[in-house]
Amino acid sequence: MNSQAQPRAESAPSAVVGSASVTLGNAPSPENGYQPADERGPAQNVPKPVRPEGMNEETAEGLEKFILYWNDCVNYGIQTGDFSYAEPLVSQDYTADLELYVWAEEVYARGGWVVGGRREVVLNKDALAEQGNGVYRWIGNLNVEDMQAYLNEPGTIVDGSQTRGRSVYFQATYKDEKWVMDIVAFAEAFPS
């Protein structure tokens, strides 16, 4: 057994399915470029999200750019604990994402890190619908990697498999010349 401190699990807003023992040691290495988090330490040299030009236009292309940028910002936050890019993009009523941000920020603030948890957005190009009053819904998929938080002992795995292959609605509102993410929910949560 290694004499170094062992990471401790933090509960996350999802189902726990297992655990693992780890040792610390993923030291920063700027010459190696981006390194994802692993059981030895947090992600290193994570690229900051870049706001795409044309994102804040009330067009299908603008909304697509917004959704992909929002996702990049959340992925950045999961890997760094810095959700300053993501928070301004979501409605204060979208509590599921805001709670994830608070949870991850706390893990990092206490000296821990998150492995996995990155999300991939896949949009169905034929499934965008205007709901009126600047509200749009776009059907797609939000595939989420399993996630594991490390603090001072073995971490527990948060299962992301329930997201794979299930349709979701990305609902955003265009107001004051910008998009705001209202909610992402499994498609069956919305009536037809």
Rank of each mutant, 00 (worst) to 15 (best):
M1P: 11
S3A: 08
S3W: 08
Q4E: 15
A5P: 13
A5K: 15
A5M: 13
P7R: 00
E10M: 13
P13N: 03
G18V: 01
G18N: 10
S19A: 10
A20M: 08
A20T: 13
A20C: 10
G25K: 05
N26Q: 13
A27Q: 14
A27L: 15
A27E: 14
P28K: 04
P28M: 09
S29C: 11
E31I: 13
E31H: 12
E31F: 13
E31Y: 14
G33Q: 02
Y34I: 03
A37W: 07
D38A: 09
R40I: 03
A43H: 07
A43F: 00
Q44W: 04
P49R: 02
V50M: 15
P52D: 03
E53T: 02
E53G: 04
M55Q: 01
N56E: 07
T59K: 01
G62A: 03
L63K: 01
L63F: 01
E64F: 05
E64G: 04
Y69D: 01
Y69A: 06
Y69F: 15
W70M: 09
C73W: 09
N75T: 07
Y76C: 02
G77W: 00
Q79K: 03
Q79S: 10
F83R: 01
S84K: 08
S84R: 10
S84T: 14
Y85N: 02
E87G: 04
V90C: 13
S91P: 09
Q92L: 15
Y94K: 03
T95D: 12
A96F: 07
L98T: 15
L98D: 08
E99R: 10
Y101G: 02
V102R: 08
W103M: 13
W103E: 00
A104K: 06
A104F: 05
A104P: 00
E106L: 15
V107Q: 12
Y108E: 07
Y108L: 10
A109Y: 06
R110L: 12
W113E: 12
V114A: 11
G116C: 09
G116Y: 10
G116A: 05
G117K: 09
G117F: 00
D126R: 14
D126I: 01
Q131T: 09
Q131R: 14
G132W: 15
G132V: 07
G132P: 01
N133G: 05
N133R: 04
R137L: 05
R137C: 02
I139P: 04
I139W: 01
G140Y: 01
N141Y: 15
E145D: 15
E145C: 10
D146L: 03
D146S: 14
M147T: 13
Q148W: 05
Q148P: 08
A149R: 01
Y150P: 03
L151M: 06
N152S: 12
E153K: 13
P154M: 02
G155D: 12
T156R: 12
I157F: 02
I157S: 03
I157M: 03
V158H: 01
S161W: 03
S161I: 05
Q162E: 11
T163F: 05
Y169I: 14
F170S: 01
F170Q: 04
A172L: 06
A172Q: 02
Y174A: 00
K175N: 06
D176W: 11
K178Y: 02
M181P: 12
I183N: 10
F186E: 07
F186T: 12
A187F: 03
E188M: 00
A189C: 09
A189S: 11
F190D: 05
F190M: 11
F190P: 00
P191Y: 03
P191Q: 04
